[in-house]
């Protein structure tokens, strides 16, 4: 598996880099500004890919965790761990770009919108996941506990989203929903390109990070440190 990752990851990286470069050009220079939002709509081309990839990253993490609990394959655990690390970055990126997009369009950096709250909770769960892993010495137990946390979090996130949506509709009308943008064709293509690029880059990053975590464990095993406990 690690050999497969090492063999193919570069192609994902290169393809992702090309997609993002072309998408950046189309999104920032060639595409028209939005009728209502003006130029600011160009933030969409980076915000939407960030948001969708971070949700996908959590989904992949949950799938890897389930697979780990089922088959107990350590490389899959490395992959879940890697996805969490990369996912923290992408989720933080989605919140950051969303906040910057919110200032000129809704005139506020932050609002207690269902999606924002769900993403914040997602970020908190991911950070808690990474913290939990650093506090456990036994690698096998670390993998099991982390997988359990990932699965429980995956069950929780949709409930968080729905409850916050109900809560918001009670307290104030959902006036600030970015769903209102009708996406024209000229804007759709760079968006698709950027999203594709981000998915490829996500795959590449997860591949690199999985290797990194795997090699770290391998090295520790080689040094004879914790040889009995290392989970390889």
């Amino acid at each position: 598996m690690i050999r497969m990752i090492r063999k193919y990851e570069d192609w994902f990286g290169v393809a992702g880099g090309i997609c993002i470069a072309v998408g950046l050009y189309l999104g920032l220079a060639a595409s028209p500004p939005d009728y209502y939002q003006g130029e600011v709509v160009r933030i969409m081309y980076i915000h939407v890919p960030f948001a969708s990839t971070s949700m996908t990253a959590y989904f992949v993490m949950t799938a890897a965790s389930l697979w780990y609990l089922w088959k107990r394959n350590p490389i899959v655990d490395n992959m879940a761990h890697a996805t969490a690390g990369v996912g923290v970055f992408f989720t933080a990126g989605a919140l950051f770009t969303g906040s910057i997009w919110g200032k000129p369009t809704w005139n506020t950096w932050w609002t207690w919108d269902a999606r924002l709250v769900s993403f914040t909770i997602l970020l908190l769960i991911l950070i808690g996941y990474l913290m939990l892993r650093t506090f456990i010495e036994d690698k096998e137990r670390e993998a099991r506990y982390a997988a359990v946390l990932a699965i429980v979090g995956a069950v929780d996130l949709p409930i968080v989203h729905f409850s916050v949506e109900w809560w918001r509709t009670l307290h104030q009308p959902l006036s600030v929903s970015p769903r209102g943008i009708a996406i024209a064709g000229a804007m759709l293509f760079p968006l698709i390109l950027m999203s594709a690029g981000f998915y490829l880059i996500l795959t590449y990053m997860v591949g690199v990070r999985t290797q990194m975590l795997y090699l770290q464990q391998l090295l520790e095993a080689k040094k004879g440190r914790l040889l009995g406990e290392v989970h390889l």
Binding site: E39, I43, I46, G93
Partner: peptide, 24 residues
């Protein structure tokens, strides 16, 4: 034109590249 906001949003590509570089 709100180019300041757009530039700031796209600046996140920098830490992303740095993160990837460190990992590799």
């Amino acid at each position: 034109p709100n180019y300041g906001f757009i530039t700031t949003a796209y600046l996140i590509m920098l830490p992303m590249g740095l993160f990837l570089f460190m990992m590799e």
